[in-house]
Design a binder for these strands. Structure first.
Length: 641
RNA sequence: GCCGACGUAGCUCAGCGGUAGAGCAACUGAUUCGUAAUCAGUAGGCCCUCGGUUCAAGUCCGAGCGUCGGCACCA
């Protein structure tokens, strides 16, 4: 005799077990039409699920957030049915709902191409129009294995094999098509609606393991209605518009070419941006008690063997051999072993700790060709790296200092939001479990004293120690891991770093590896996308263009540009024989933040008309006032009062 | 590294067996103009590389390199 409690606390009594659909009908025809699934005691289930006990029921309609996941999951099934109808012999594997959509992985000799999409999508719409009912069916484990084996679906059979023995095996049938699935699903394929689109194909390894077969994955997106779909497609366009590779080309910041795949050719404007960021970082590090150093690019294999890199990191290193000498050198992939060499020079007292050695360290790492991605993933990059040699007791206060510095720097670059991930010991690691216990404990304590909330990232630590990862959120909500703080007891030990303690004994210091931007290349890529190329004045590679309206103003325009440059601004002069409209357009497209327009009137009155990027108004100021104003605005945040 | 797509003028792209094209940019000339494109003209190409098929190859086939989208990787 189930008593069903609804969200408004009202209770409905039934004489016998009922399905959710029956309950919905009992409540009203409107709800019966709208209900897609229900939450039974908090668990999302099919509407056809039998309710045989007193329960809380919440019906899920199209408006609820759960609806999206149902629509996407159902769409994945429809995709699979469409594909098997059109391409017999294709095996199905898995097809989940994901953020913004769904995918389905197929096993097929000929992978799908986007050319197949129109047919598949048309077939999907046909299946949606058929309104095939989703029917859940429980099957005995062995029978299910046989069932899929007989159909030639060996991936499905394998999935069942690997399910826990006590797991209920459920199948979902829509029309004549059946899939192994734990559900839940909506009532019928018609509930999916029309707001879906196939997006791209990709290879994907079976079970995500590169030793397994490569499957053909089709990605799709699905939404509640056309408006949501259009909105999503618009957001994608927006992200494409911000792509740093596109903007880098448009603004002439940098380029790549085959002969140096994965390494950046910085152009004058891009390098200006880079140097601005570097100069800012140098000032911040100086002020925070770091000492800058510079260490060798090419280092003998012997040092990498001692540090453990040769064993743990070799496949990522560029190795160089010299013909005349029997030596093997490697381009450094990290700066830490070299910093330990500096620490080891002379005798260090505990009084000198913490010792903070910073380097804008140029590193090379061999990245797999498929991983390269503009500035975001390169083979040669420069870290804003530093190593803090300290005692155990100094780890928490150093962590607090570091996080304060990091937060302030992110703020100055225009990022207000970041979060922290804690990565603990990986499978492949150096050092004993005792040392790892100590290092992880120290880092946790440091987090507590810095008041840091973090999410755990199990097994993702560096081979020499656990780490905190600092993740930025950009202007359109994407996350970028940039900063890091790693506790390391192992490298100082391996490389023989020591200090003389208060009691005269020799001790090994702890070493904190830390970076705030991560790599300049990647961070600048993030910055370009965050600002979509429209940098704040202090970062903009070209801060102002002085543009004339008539050639009579050329001489005065030259004076204005010179005055701006004398005040430390990067200013260009546009005396070209074009209308002011064209100049405004050209420099707006180039994302120049300030256009200083001078015509006959300005030349006579010794004024300039300032026009801000994206604005439609002008501000006419006397020359000196304009220069003062812009110089003031262009002052980096750490130098302005 | 794996799967797929792509590689043509500085940029964006069209051409898909039969003499290499467009728009923008560049250059030249005219125009001196008040806040997102003034007009006219000129020039510009180892069609990624190497092999093959063919009377004939940007065009078809193979290999390599690179780029893009995923996967794996990000130690």
């Amino acid at each position: 005799m189930p008593a069903i409690t609804l969200p408004d606390k009202s209770v409905r009594q039934f004489d016998a077990p009922v399905t959710g659909a029956t309950v919905a009908e009992a409540i009203g025809p409107g709800l019966a039409r709208a209900a897609l699934a229900m939450k039974l005691d908090g668990r999302l289930v099919d509407l056809e699920t039998q309710i045989d006990h007193d329960a809380d029921v919440v019906f899920v309609t199209r408006r609820d957030p759960e609806a999206l996941e149902l629509i996407r999951h159902d769409a994945a099934h429809v995709l699979a049915e469409a594909v098997q109808e059109l391409y017999p012999g294709t095996q199905v594997t898995i097809g989940p709902a994901i953020a913004d959509g769904f995918y389905y992985d197929f096993a097929r000799n000929d992978p799908f191409t986007p050319d197949d999409f129109p047919r598949i999508e048309a077939k999907m719409r046909e299946i949606v129009a058929r309104g095939e009912k989703f029917v859940r069916q429980v099957m005995d484990r062995d029978a299910a294995i046989r069932f899929f084996d007989d159909k030639g679906e060996k991936y499905k059979a394998e999935i069942i094999q690997d399910l826990p023995r006590d797991e209920t095996i459920t199948l979902y049938r829509q029309g004549d098509w059946v899939d192994l699935c734990r559900g839940p699903h909506m009532r019928s394929t018609a509930d999916i609606g029309g707001a879906f689109k196939l997006m791209k194909v990709a290879g994907a390894y079976w079970r995500g393991d590169h030793r397994n077969a490569m499957l053909s994955r089709i990605y799709g997106t699905a939404w509640r209605d056309q408006k949501e779909l259009d909105n999503y497609l618009h957001v994608l366009e927006e992200a494409e518009r911000r792509d740093h590779r596109r903007i880098g080309k448009e603004m002439g910041l940098f380029h790549f070419q085959e002969e140096a795949a994965g390494s950046v050719f910085w152009h004058p404007k891009g390098w200006k941006l880079y140097r601005t960021a570097e100069a800012y970082m140098r000032r911040r590090l100086d002020a925070a008690g770091y000492q800058e150093v510079k260490t060798p690019q090419l280092v003998d294999r012997a040092l990498w063997e001692r540090s453990g890199h040769w064993e743990k990191f070799r496949q990522h290193m560029f190795i160089a051999r010299v013909e005349d000498e029997d030596k093997t050198l490697a381009l450094k992939p990290m700066n830490c072993p070299c910093h330990v060499q500096i620490f080891r020079q002379g005798v260090r007292s505990y009084r000198a700790l913490p010792l903070r050695l910073a380097e804008f360290g140029s590193c090379h790492r061999y990245e797999p060709s498929g991983a390269l991605h503009g500035l975001m993933r390169v083979r040669q990059f420069t870290q804003d790296d530093a190593h803090i040699f300290c005692t155990d007791q100094q780890i928490p206060p150093e962590t607090v200092r570091f996080v304060e510095l990091l937060a302030s720097i992110y703020r100055d670059f225009g990022f207000s939001e970041f979060f922290v991930k804690f990565s603990d010991r990986p499978a492949l690691r150096a050092g004993s479990d005792d040392v790892w216990d100590r290092a992880e404990g120290a880092l946790k304590e440091a987090c507590a004293s810095a008041g840091i909330d973090y999410t755990l990232n199990p097994g993702e630590g560096a081979f020499y120690g656990p780490k905190l990862e600092f993740v930025l959120r950009d202007a359109i909500g994407r996350d970028w891991q940039c900063g890091t703080l790693q506790v390391d007891y192992i490298l100082p030990e391996l490389l023989g770093a020591e200090y003389v303690a208060e009691d005269g004994s020799r001790r090994t210091p702890a070493m904190l590896h830390r970076a705030i931007l991560g790599s300049f290349e990647r961070f600048l890529g993030v910055l370009i996308e965050h600002y979509a190329g429209r940098f704040p004045l202090w970062l903009a590679p070209v801060q102002a263009v002085v543009a004339t309206i008539v050639s009579d103003a050329d001489a005065y325009a030259g004076e204005v540009a010179l005055a701006l440059r004398k005040a430390g601004l990067t200013a260009e002069l546009d005396l070209s024989n074009q209308k002011i409209n064209a100049k405004v357009r050209e420099h707006s497209l180039a994302h120049v933040p300030v256009l200083a327009v001078v015509g006959r009137k300005e030349a006579e009155q010794r004024t300039v008309a300032l026009r801000r990027l994206g604005g439609s108004t002008q501000e006419v100021l006397p020359l000196e006032a304009a220069v003062r104003r812009l110089a003031d605005e262009a002052t980096p945040p750490d130098l302005s009062s």
